[in-house]
């Protein structure tokens, strides 16, 4: 029994030792690229990473979510190789620079069984601001959480007839719930019977579980965004720490995103290349 205890103790110490030693190397691996930030950019970044990994088998790219806010602060703190943001950087966000990698529309989505097809900016503003139902059908809406780039862009872009933007409100109507990812918004909207809910997501994330609405009579298509007819659009931004050099692997992936091949993937997935 004594022997057993000794062995167990030794094992215990050994493993914790290993664990601690292992932690020292965390992030130090040359062939690992860590990217964090916007959950709107994430699906595109994962596609790009998958294509890149297929070409460079020795490089592992980890794409984490967390929201644009996290992407930017992680980059500021040097916690990622680069961050993703689904809105332009604010002037208060110093120490990092943003490089636009694609443009994305924000699609207004409803349940496929919903009868509404078209909404105006005023209708959307008032649904979020004071809960005025749209067409008597859309009585509730989903917002994203406050760190979301999609929310930031949406709140700035949705302006009512009087020129007020959602972003200046200190609170939305009682019918507005908050979901903290593109996936959550889609799950809610797509759930059978949820025909009274309006939500918004990245255009590239749209699939057939949801129906996309026209905004001010304009269809949410890549062409309309490029032509400037569809006003709900924002840049996808790569956030890099100022003055810091990317690791070799990160630099390779960074270059790949802006290469012709990378931009083709951007286009194939329903986003607008630069």
């Amino acid at each position: 029994m004594k022997k057993l205890t000794t062995v167990a103790l030794a094992l215990c110490l050994g493993v914790s030792g290993m664990a601690l030693a292992g932690c020292g190397e965390n992030g130090g691996n040359e062939n690992e690229v860590y990217i964090s930030g916007s959950t709107s950019v994430q699906p595109l970044m994962e596609k790009l990473a998958a294509a890149f990994e297929a070409k460079h088998e020795d490089i592992v790219i980890t794409v984490d979510g967390g929201g644009s806010g996290k992407g930017i602060t992680d980059a500021q703190d040097g916690l990622n190789d680069f961050g993703m943001s689904s809105r332009a950087l604010k002037s208060s966000e110093t120490g990092v620079k943003g490089v636009t990698m694609a443009t994305d529309g924000i699609a207004l989505i409803v349940n496929p069984e919903c009868e509404i097809d078209d909404v105006t900016n005023d209708e959307v503003y008032h649904l979020y601001a004071d809960g005025t139902a749209i067409g008597g059908v859309l009585t509730a809406a989903i917002s994203r959480e406050s760190g979301s780039g999609t929310r930031g862009a949406f709140d700035e872009l949705v302006v009512n007839e009087a020129g007020d933007a959602l972003v200046d409100l200190t609170g939305f109507a009682d019918c507005v719930q908050t979901q903290n990812s593109t996936g959550n918004v889609m799950t809610q909207i797509a759930t059978k019977g949820n025909t009274n809910l309006l939500g918004y997501i990245s255009m590239g994330s749209v699939d057939d579980t949801v129906k996309v609405l026209k905004y001010n009579g304009v269809e949410a298509t890549v062409e309309n965004v490029v032509a400037g007819n569809y006003s709900l659009s924002r840049p996808f931004v790569i956030v890099v720490k100022e003055g810091a050099e990317l690791s070799e692997a990160a630099q390779m992936f960074y270059d790949y995103i802006f290469s012709e091949e990378g931009q083709t993937i951007v286009e194939q997935n329903g986003y607008i290349k630069i």
Partner: peptide
């Protein structure tokens, strides 16, 4: 939790 926040391509919910 992660699948909830970031749906798996092709599988979703």
């Amino acid at each position: 939790y992660r699948f909830q926040v970031e749906p798996v391509p092709g599988l979703g919910v």
